[in-house]
Amino acid sequence: MSNKYNITCVFEDGATTHFHTSAIETVYSAALRSGLTLETDCREGACGVCKAFLADGQCDIGDVSDEALTEDEQEEGFLLACQARARSDMVLEFAYPLSMLKKEVAVIDARISELEPVADNVMRLVLESDADTPVFLAGQYVNMTVPGRVPARSYSFANAPGDNEKMEFFVRLLPEGAMSDWLRDHAKVGDSLQVQGSYGQFFLRPPRAGRVVMVAGGTGLAPMLSMLAQLKASGNPMPQVTLLYGANFAGELFGQERIAEYGDNVTLHRVVVNGEDGWQGQTGFVTDLLADGLLDDAASTDAYLCGPPPMIDAAREKLLALGVPSARIFAEKFLPATSVEGAA
């Protein structure tokens, strides 16, 4: 019997689909069998229409022409879905939206199983469902809706992808906002929501050299918690992770006890903008922590950034200056807390 592998496809619009394949069928054939018709033309490895980037995993690229897939592209990690056959679980990135294929991401009904404040204006929300919970990659998000009350809002998973029993999120409660008002004033255990996903091109890649730096602002810590849990559960030696975490006030920080469970594998640096209320740590912006000497091998470091756009832009600039390759800096921006609710 042929080995069975899981294929995850991430599209330009952030939508994600999943299907199974065997070692003897092509990615395109397996997708078609699952009901997903990927973009293609010749189906003979000659046109390049079905080109995808292999973000994770191994495959046999099959018989392809130099015009459709050059040697440089092969070395960079590209393949043709009509020819490639999996040799492990794979994550593929496609340069067009899933919506172009006229396929919608499923919506599932869920209910609140846990609801608790974990910091000033931060609520921990755990959902469960009688249906299958969304398959996701560590770092991705869902769109969450309260039918008739709250339109879709985007929140990143905080739990590991392998945890099929729950969906965990950390939500920043804004002074005004449909989801914030509902969670703060009305929501209770047992209440129903709808979840659609998963989405996002911000997800964990295999560490190249055992060095990872994460920069999180506010509830941008949530996807980092998911990534840490996945790194621990992967079965491979956990890399050395430097986690830089910032907030406006000390009371807004959360997650320290969970991070401490990783021991020496994770070095946590916390900083707040306003060092009041007895705060004994460093003050300033989280990007101030990206200083010379922080990374002992920047060229072999993978970086993950999640927070408001100004933080992302400043962190990217400093990481590049430190020597982290641009292609190994992955980021998720969400709207500032002073604006409307967005991905977090």
Rank of each mutant, 00 (worst) to 15 (best):
T21S: 12
F254M: 08
E165H: 10
L101A: 02
A23D: 14
P147T: 08
I61Y: 11
K51V: 02
F169A: 06
V107C: 01
T21A: 11
T26K: 06
A106C: 01
R258C: 02
V212D: 10
G263Q: 05
D191H: 12
A55I: 02
P336L: 05
L322I: 04
G35A: 02
L319A: 08
V150H: 03
L225N: 02
N3W: 13
R124I: 00
H18L: 06
G77F: 02
Q230C: 09
Y28H: 12
P207C: 11
V241W: 02
Q240E: 10
Q280Y: 08
I329N: 08
T37Q: 12
A55M: 12
K188P: 12
V266Y: 06
D63H: 11
S226F: 10
A291W: 03
Y262R: 05
Q58S: 13
K102T: 02
L36C: 08
A314W: 07
N164G: 09
K188A: 15
V340N: 14
V213M: 11
L320V: 11
W182M: 10
A229S: 12
G293Y: 11
L92F: 03
N159L: 04
L38R: 00
E165R: 14
A260W: 08
L320G: 13
G139M: 04
E261H: 11
K166L: 12
R153I: 08
N236P: 02
T16I: 14
Q83S: 08
R85D: 02
V27R: 01
M144S: 03
E341A: 09
V91P: 00
E44V: 06
K188T: 15
F285S: 05
V64F: 03
G197P: 00
A344T: 13
A84K: 00
G139S: 07
A222M: 07
S226N: 02
K51A: 01
C9R: 05
D56N: 14
D288A: 06
R258H: 13
I24T: 13
Q201E: 12
E25Q: 10
Q201T: 15
K166G: 01
A299K: 14
V286K: 07
E257H: 12
R149A: 14
L290G: 08
Y5F: 15
H20C: 06
S29G: 09
Q140H: 04
K188H: 15
S339P: 01
P97E: 02
L36E: 09
V107R: 04
S198I: 00
P207N: 13
L322G: 04
A81T: 12
A209G: 15
M90K: 03
E116P: 01
A138K: 06
A86E: 02
H269I: 07
G263W: 03
D120F: 00
N265C: 13
K103T: 10
D181G: 13
